[in-house]
């Protein structure tokens, strides 16, 4: 997928991969890659600033956790993050349905 187009949906994607359980940055990136079958291939360095931005916006919360002797920053959705995800997901679904209906593309 085109990287610029992907960046426009990065917030939704990050919130979605953190929906079920907290994770640190590397796992977030791994989940993005695995769930997209390798289709979402952003420079991994862009993920961290995006996570920080979402945290500043109050959609994520993070804290250091110890794992195998290393400190990691684990991110989790806030209540506002869950609401934002639901709203963005609904918006995206409406948009995708519209595009598919107009272009005749298949999902």
């Amino acid at each position: 997928m085109d990287r610029e187009r992907l960046k426009g949906h990065l917030d939704l994607l990050l919130l979605a991969v953190l929906e079920d359980e907290p994770a640190h940055g590397y796992v977030v990136i791994t989940r993005l890659r695995e769930r997209s079958d390798g289709g979402f291939d952003l420079p991994e360095g862009t993920i961290y600033p995006a996570l920080h931005r979402l945290e500043r916006a109050g959609l994520l919360v993070s804290d250091w956790v110890e794992h195998a002797g290393r400190r990691r920053r684990a991110y989790a959705l806030t209540a506002a993050g869950h609401r934002e995800l639901a709203a963005e997901r609904a918006s995206w679904t409406r948009f995708a349905r519209g595009v598919i209906a107009v272009t005749g593309a298949t999902a």
């Binding site: 420079p43 360095g45 916006a57 109050g58």
Partner: peptide
Amino acid sequence: DRLGDPRAFTRAAAVSSWHRPSWAA
């Protein structure tokens, strides 16, 4: 290589701080 250019990493961080001012800011 996968993490990308460190300049892009830090530039994105600087922009992200003010890209969408939070209520906290």
